[in-house]
Design a protein around this nucleic acid. Structure first.
Lengths: 331, 331
DNA sequence: GACTAATACGCAATCGCTTTTATTTTTTGA
DNA sequence: TCAAAAAATAAAAGCGATTGCGTATTAGTC
């Protein structure tokens, strides 16, 4: 049971050298030592299956090689896609991902932030719409640990950022619908939207008469999208702009239940371009964000910052793109 | 910058007692000390915003309060759902989730297992079809750390298990199709399926003449499902059994592109009952697994094991259920 | 052959905390 | 009143590594 005892000491004893020598050799200073010694130590290490104790090590190094990642909802394919990107970016550099799923719960979000910080992660990636600047400042900035808030222009001047051009994305969506002849549009978004969503709307609305736009308060979920259909039907809208794909999927369902057809009765445009878009019937026209890259780039940028903590704040921009499929049609 | 210095020593000094007293008080032995002393220490702690150093602490305690979770593909909604469950289960007990996404890559999987072990996680939850018993034995059993392989009857006698009755699930799917009058069925599954998938097939096939079943080699992804349609069309099948919902979604797309209609041309049955099933057109008939509970139960069971490492191996069974929707119809 | 300069390695401090043991102070009771 | 028991706190021993600095051994130089 308690075979838990292979320490550096054992390796030292086995190879007949001192602890410090073992440590040195195992940490790359091979060349500083006699060929024979190095060999012995390495041999002993493998014989004994020695692994340096993670905690003892980290205590001294003050680095955990771990990044805390906080997302609001891991079951949302946008976020799971981002996580996949993050994870890929971190894995390359041998960093681990400490994942926290806030479950759309503000309190859990803060609790997690604290916990991550307590656990000494080397940096944070936060993909959350809810988290307030205040919480960020309080918990993160104070601790002087690098962090990036994904796709949100918050904490300006305190962190790097990876952004997509949400305004442009909104514009593209608007232009598309407008070109197809639609004038009356139902826009589905939360009444208190996160910054990036707000930008989407800003870009979108410029293509229309403001009075032709009906904004329907809709959470960023499928359920909310479905529920919003009821309201949509009461408008004279001919097209729907859902500020994320999840909402759009909900709309598909709601519309189907109401006996309406896409795109004949309503054109619908989503946002994100998650995998499922192509598997819907009809395939969803949407604005593509480079989801995987968003995660990966963020991870890389954060890692850069960690290894060089006083470089200039950097802001990376990723492109968005209109993906025209079959959920929209000429009026 | 380097304000990183609040140690237990500072708290001790500030409150005029010794280090050990502070430690004791902060770790629950309050009652052993004078009322006044306790108060002072607590005060000093909050004044100084003292947080015990995670690593120093763990080095002694030999517990990391962290569970390593390994999944093959986080973007698969089944897995992200399971993770959400796990995460919820662990959060309640203040355990953290160290997430690893193997990305369907066997090598990455092993590498992660090693890394997790090095990082001293207290236990593992593995949701992977690929991982071999061998790898499990080698890395996990050897280290004598508790683990559970989700929904796979592997490592029997070495670990607890949380299982769903895949055989029964397969049976339900088969019975359903058979009752509707279908005889010729295309079954979409990998040629080298993980144990649970194999069971689904076993349960399924008993309802039919073996010669009426065409098994088409299909990975557990949407893309593979779509691609399989080509083969399906060459059979005389009137119904399709996809061993997970992802495949079924792929089939939807493939069938649509081939100009076929569900359920009129083909009835299709999926497996898992992920959220999206209800949002497809037509809604997907499927076998429901309690995805969230699967994760949560696993987490709880693992935690029980950790706190009581020599109780009997336990095997929990979760129910499956036929969810009849609109993707199947009478022949 | 004596002295300096590399070369190869070990000593011991340190990291921040927990825990066991020891010490001091207070209380108790006959 | 005074020793013994109890209560309150302090001292010290790790935990398992890393690391700066010191020392012994060997090689190089004249």
């Amino acid at each position: 049971m308690k075979n838990k005892a292979v320490t550096i000491k054992d390796v030292a004893k086995q190879s007949g050298v001192s602890i410090s020598t073992v440590s040195q050799i195992l940490n790359g200073n091979k060349d500083k030592f006699g060929k024979k010694t190095v060999e012995n130590v390495l041999q002993a290490k493998t014989d004994l299956k020695y692994e340096p104790d993670y905690f003892a090590r980290r205590m001294i190094m003050k680095k955990s090689k771990t990044i805390g990642v906080l997302v609001p909802d891991i079951t949302n394919p946008f976020f799971s896609g981002v996580i996949r990107g993050i994870e890929a970016g971190l894995y390359k550099e041998n960093y681990a991902t400490l994942l926290c799923n806030a479950d759309l719960d503000n309190q859990k979000e803060s609790a997690y932030l604290e916990e991550l910080s307590r656990r000494g992660v080397d940096g944070f990636i936060i993909a959350s719409s809810n988290i307030s600047n205040e919480a960020i400042n309080k918990t993160l900035q104070a601790k002087d640990r690098p962090f990036i808030v994904i796709d949100q222009k918050k904490a300006e001047g305190f962190s790097d950022a990876v952004l997509t051009d949400d305004f442009q994305g909104g514009t593209l969506a608007g232009q598309h619908l407008q070109k197809l002849g639609h004038r009356k549009i139902a826009v589905l978004m939360p009444s208190n939207p996160p910054e990036n969503v707000k930008q989407r709307f800003e870009g979108f609305k410029d293509n229309f008469e403001l009075s032709d736009l009906t904004v329907i308060d809709t959470d960023l979920t499928k359920e909310a999208g479905q529920k919003a259909v009821e309201s949509i039907l009461r408008t004279s809208a001919t097209a729907i702009f859902a500020v994320n794909d999840e909402i759009a999927f909900g709309v598909y369902r709601g519309l189907a239940e109401a006996g309406k057809t896409i795109p004949d009765d309503y054109s619908v445009v989503g946002y994100d371009n998650v995998d499922m878009c192509e598997y819907m019937q009809p395939q969803l026209t949407t604005i593509a964000q480079p989801i995987f890259e968003l995660g990966q780039t963020t991870a890389e940028l954060l890692l850069e910052r960690i290894s060089n903590s006083d470089k200039e704040w950097e802001e990376k921009h990723l492109p968005v793109q209109m993906i025209e499929r079959n959920s929209t049609t000429m009026l």
